[in-house]
Structures are given as C-alpha cells and as structure tokens.
Design a protein around this nucleic acid. Sequence first.
RNA 1: GCCGAAGUGGCGGAAUGGCAGACGCACACGACUCAAAAUCGUGCGGGAAACCAUGCGGGUUCAAGUCCCGCCUUCGGCACCA
Length: 803
Amino acid sequence: MKVYNPAEVEKKWQKFWEENKTYNVKDHVEGKENEYILIEFPYPSGIGLHLGHCRSYTAIDAVARMKRLCGKNVLFPFGTDAFGLEAERTAIREKKLPQEIVERNIQVFHSQLKEIGLSFDWSRTINSCDEDYYKWTQWQFIQFFKKGLAEKQETTVNWCPNCGVLANEEVEDGTCCQCHAETTQKAKAQWVLKMTEYGERLADDLDKTDYLDHIKLSQLNWIGKSEGVEVDFEIKQGGKFSIFTTCIETIYGITFMVLAPESKVVDNLKDKITNWDEVLKYRAETAKKSEFDRTEMNKDKSGLKLQGVSAINPVNGKEVDIYIGDFVLAGYGTGAVMAVPTHDQRDYEFADKFGIPKIQVIEGDVSEKALEKYDYLGKGIKLINSEEFTGMTVEEAKVAITDKLVNMGVARKKLNFKMRDWIFSRQRYWGEPIPMINCPHCGWVPEKEENLPLTLPHVDSYEPTKDGESPLSVIPEFVNTICPVCGAAAKRETDTMPGWAGSSWYFLRYCDPHNTKEFASKEALKAWLPVKLYNGGNEHTTRHLLYARFWVKVLYDLDLVPVDEPFKKRISQGLILGADGKKMSKSAGNGVDPRIMVERYGADSLRVWMSFMGEYSEKVNWSEDGLKACNKFLNKIWNIQELVNGDNPTKELQFALNTAIKKVTNDIENNKFNTAISAIMILVNEIYKVKKLSNDEYKKLLLLISPFAPHLANELFDIMGYGRSIEDCAWPQVDEKALQLDEIEMPVQVNGRVRAVVTIPSSASQDEIVEIAKSNEEVAKFITGNIVKVIYVPKKILNLIVK
RNA sequence: GCCGAAGUGGCGGAAUGGCAGACGCACACGACUCAAAAUCGUGCGGGAAACCAUGCGGGUUCAAGUCCCGCCUUCGGCACCA
C-alpha cells in the first residue's frame, strides 16, 4: 500500500477536474433538478485568499458536492468584486493603476482557489470591474432612472478641508484619518436610489424567504417600518411644517417642537427669528458632529430656542415654542418632531435642561422619568388632560385622535421607515461611471443605451480632487459631451457608483455570464433563480442583502427577472480569530497563510479542519494542532484500505454506517458541518474496532467524506476500483432497517436525578420498563417511599417521583 | 446609545426541555521499537463521598446549557469600507 501523499493526490485530481471540466454546468440536464448555491464574491485583495474565505468556501463547496451526488444539477459559481475604495487606496499606496492591481490579484485568487479543490464552474467567472459586466450595471441604473427611482437629492457628506469628501471610516473622532484636519458635515447634491418606496415590500416579503431568524430580524429592524400619523403644524408667524409620530395619543402633551437645525423651515423663518446669530452658531456646531454623535441617546441634550416664533397645536390651538436640536436629522422623516416630555425620555431630558413645562396625558408615574409607549401600550391604560379623549384607553384614543385630525384636513395616516434612500454617488475614481448627462436644455438625461459601457477613462492621477469633486471632473474629454436628446453641448455626471452597485446583481449574471445582448436571458434566469442557498459574512446581513433584494425587486417590476426575492435561504459563517483569540491582522502578527497550511498538511486536511473546527456561524480560534489532527484522521481513512475484506457487509458495522449516513446527510443539509465530520469520525473509530469491512461499506464511507475531502475520496475510489470518478456515483441512502435495535439503553431517574441506565427490549411497555427499573439495585436504593408519579418519555427517559 | 449574536472542562467544541461535556486537541499510562517518531490501545470536569458544575442573580418545570425576568462581559452592524 502506498503512503497517503496529499500533494501528489491533490495535484492529480485538480488537473483531472480542470481537463474534464467536471464542474461546468448546463442550464438544463434531462431528469435533474437545478440548484443554485452561491457564495458572496470577494474583493480580490493583494494578500490573496485568507482563512475566512477558506472556511466558507470549503463548507459551501461541501454542500454543492453533496447536492451533485444527490442528483441535482448544481450551479456553484465564482467571481470577484473589484471596484471600491479599498482597491483604489491600495493602488494609490502602491503607485499603480487599480486595473493592474486587480488583474494581478484575481490571478492569485483563482490559482489559490483551485489549490483547495473548490468545485466552481470556472467557465462562468465574472468580475464587477470588467467593461462587459459594468456595462449592465450602468444599463440597469438607467432603467432605475427611467422608472423614477434615481434622482439627484441634497445630502450630507463628511468634509475635510484638505482631502475633500471622506467616507465614514476615514473620519476618526471628527478628524480626517489622512491629514488630521477637523472635519465637518457639508451639503452635496448626489444621486439617490429611492429604496424607501420599496420599504413595505422589503419588510413583508421576508416571509417568502427561509433566512435564519436573526437575519430576518436584522433586516426588519433596519427597514424599521412603523405606522403612524403625519400632522401639519401651523407657524403662528406664517408658514407650516409637518411631523411624523407613532404616538398620536400623546398629542395633548406637546409642550414644544424641535426642528432639525439645517431645516429649510428654519431658513424660511429667518426674518421672524430674533436670535438668528445664535441659530447660525448652533448650525456651525452641529456641522462638526457626525450623525452618529447627534443621535446618540446618552449624550448631553443640546438645542436652541427659536425666539420670536411659535407653533400651533392643531388639536387644541395651543401655542408652543419651537426649538432646533441636533438630534433631529434633516434627512430623516420630515426633519421635525413633536415633543411630549412626559411620554418620551429624550423629550423629558430636553425639557428638564431647558426648563420647559411637562403635561401628563396618560395615567401613570412620570415624576422620575417618562412613561413611554413600551410602558403603557396594550394594558388598557387611559388618557388624562386630553379634552374629549380623556378617559379613553390609549388604543381607542389612537384611532379617535387620528380620525379627528384627518377630518380636520391637517393629518394623514402614514407608514414611515427608519431605512433611508440609498445614496448612490461617490466622488471617487474606481467605480462605475454613472451614465448620466446634464443638458442645459433637457436637464438630466441618460446616456444612449447603445453607447454603453460608458468606460472609466484610464488616467495617471485618480486621487480625489481638493474641491470634493470626482477625479473624473478634471478630465475634459470625459466631461464634455453632447446631449443625447437635443444634441446641445452638455456635461457628464462625474460621480461613480458605490461598491455596493455591482454586488447587487452579480448573482444574476452568473446565470448567463457571456450574454452580449442582455444582462442575462430570461430563460437562463428562470432556470436558476431563486438562489437556493446564499452564504456570506455576518457584516453583510443588513446592507448588501437589502440592496440586492431591492435591486431585484425593481428588475422584477420591470419584468426583467422572474423572481421578486433572489435568495431563498441566507446563512453566514463566523470569523476565524488568531490563536490568541484576536482578529487576525498584520499588526497583531497572528495571521495564518492558507497556502502554507496546504503545503504542510494538504488541502483536504485543511478543508476538513475548516468544517470541524466549530459551529459554522460562530467565531472560532485558529489552532494548527486541530489541522494536524484532521490530517491524521484522513490518514486513518486512507489506511482502512487494508481492512477491506470481501463483499459481505458485516452486520456489526451496518448500524454505525447507517447512523453516519443519516447524520452526515442531515447535517450538511442544515449546515452543521462540524457534527457531520464528527459523525464520520465515530464511524471510522467503529471500523478500527471491528477491523474489517466490505467494499460496499468502504465505498459509502468514501462518499460520505468526499464533500469535505474530495481529492482523497477520488483517489481511493480509483485505487479500490470503485470507479474512475466519484462524480458518477450516488449519495448513499439510509437503510432504516439497519437502524432498528433489539435493545435500547434507558436512563432512569428518581426525583429528577439519574440513578441508573438499564437495558430494555425495544418492544417493552411502560409497565415492563418500570418493573425493570425498580429491580435495578441503584434505582431501588433511592426508592425510599411510594412512587407517586411515573414520567415516561419513550426512547428518552424514565423518571420515578417518590414521596 | 440602538439593532443582532455569543458566553459550557486545561483547549476547540457536542447536546428537537430528557444521562451535560459527543467528536477532537493537549496530557498521562501501556503496546510496538535498541531508541525516538509514527501508529495502535486505555484513562482523562471537580470531589473520598454525599454531591458540586454550562458568565452572574432570581423564576417556571417531574426535569433547564436549553424557556421566562433582571444584570455582566465579549464580538458584529449602525447608512461614503464593502
């Protein structure tokens, strides 16, 4: 017998798969059901594949491999997401073009992925920064625009006086991470996709998916759908503004109103406001704070009373003061709130700080803190101090007050979303150019679709400009163009799209990656969608997932894709931390290069260890000892060759084998890879105990390990003459008969404590089992009185309650 | 702060409300060997025992790592990193 040599075996099979295009898939195969299994396409960083990629890719590869053996026609594609700030910064640092860096990195990625034996369909590889890919990203943006879902809006950006617009992660404690200048918030017109129009469907359609519960919950919380009322407030000195509230029942408790400091309403009142200087000062202070700082609950409440103006509460005509406060954001809701200190803790603290009176309108104790909706809803609590509504329950009053205001014509029922529209502009070089043209006569018009892709010009300098405009804005050949509608001289949009753009639809392109007429044909999309299993990082369970769902819903409404939910099931892998329990990083020096591990122990050992090291969705600490152990385990499987003894299945092994088949099948299906491996280990231990097995039993063992250790399993298939390739075989079926036992072990408790484990015939009745239990010495010792109750859970436990 | 997740032996981790610690690592002992490595086998939470043990404090239950209430700690996200 040859010794197990992973390097040799793995090279052989990787070559075999490549030459035979084993994992290339057709859209239709007679008699086979299609199944689409997807991993998030990575950013191809220069470091190459890291352990985190290995963990998720090898685990999901195991799912794909098992599904194929189960007779499914499996699409399991790979691509790279190369646009974005990270690539741009790397390029600036290395003084190279992003294009060059990306190309180099992708090559490294591909070869590394092949070295760990992933069963991707390499004929479908895509890359989000390729022209024939982003052509379609641009084309889809134009469809969004034509549908009225893309428009320029006034937004706020982080502003550094030296470096221009900054990403949030480039701002540290109010200073620029590059030059350490103080940053401010600045208004800027940007392209926005109107995602809030899809808010309700994005929330409700989660019911159509099988996402893990916590992922659904994260999505729902992010969307933050709330039902409430939008109410108009007249300003005594002229004009009006609206607020949104989910607590209309507290409207009689209003003692002040708060506007966002930068609100247009405030500008309109400029002549009436007698402390305008203070307003300007407060605005300047606010501009220094990030949104995060502004809305943080624990911070000191800040605000400013607008002197000389007041608002009228429409429900009772009462006059109340108007404040500006930085915790109210101009871009969120209506940019104004009603304040009821007795029933909202933030308003309570604000009122205390500014000496504003409080009016209690709901029964309860408000002497120390506000009585909030979580305290009073659903308990039949009644209103006070609310004119004709006094004495109604909160729930009755909600309806009655809304009706009254709606009838008065000053209010509307409304859905509000915490989720905001998607800011789609970046003043960066390394992204898809937004294919829009600003014509002095026609306004914003899209580039002609036949002219796409609008290519990103190759330039020497692509660092952000000092004036905060995109690097493209200083390239006259790019900027100057003619209007596609009227032919007048016009200027191109110079902003590029965010990294999220290409990743919002790449899974559609995999269905038909070489199509030059459409982003994908209807037939191909129909053949594969929806994605059956989508795996990605936990950090993407809110935003990327939401953007992709939104994008697909829009395309669905345009009749361009056949599904309105792209992903049936979504799961996430946990992080791999360093051996020291800290995040792997260069500075911590705790990083591990998968290539070196493959060199030392082989790809199959690494694959098995990745799956075995812990619960898939939980973080784990790296340990090379565990990898060594997996190598040892594969060696044991290799050495079983010598124990194979004829073709008669041994009865003693059948129970262990079928238990393993059942467990491994269920576990892979449910993404419990660690216990799947442990089930195979138990089987192998059993084989070593019995020391002989049949060809059929060995073959089934090899099939069970093949999703995790495909090279080893294929090689042993070859050696044992079970077939040239494991791909031609079927996944083993459970023989339920082999799982039937004549006798079972039954733990016996007395008063809830296990006192013995007795062996009982599996056919025994409850009474018989009680008799067997009572006659057990250990049990009898603890039966010191009468048995007053017997709790028997078949096949689980017997509990005797003694008094 | 808000949203989400996690906390179990020396370590990684198992456990549809039903024998806590499966499986593995490390360790110890034994077999093989001149010897070592490799391999194979045995043992392995604490405690003499009664019992005590799943981050902390309460509760529900015949029975709680698991369910409920209140805390603590760690990690991820919070909209221009993707």
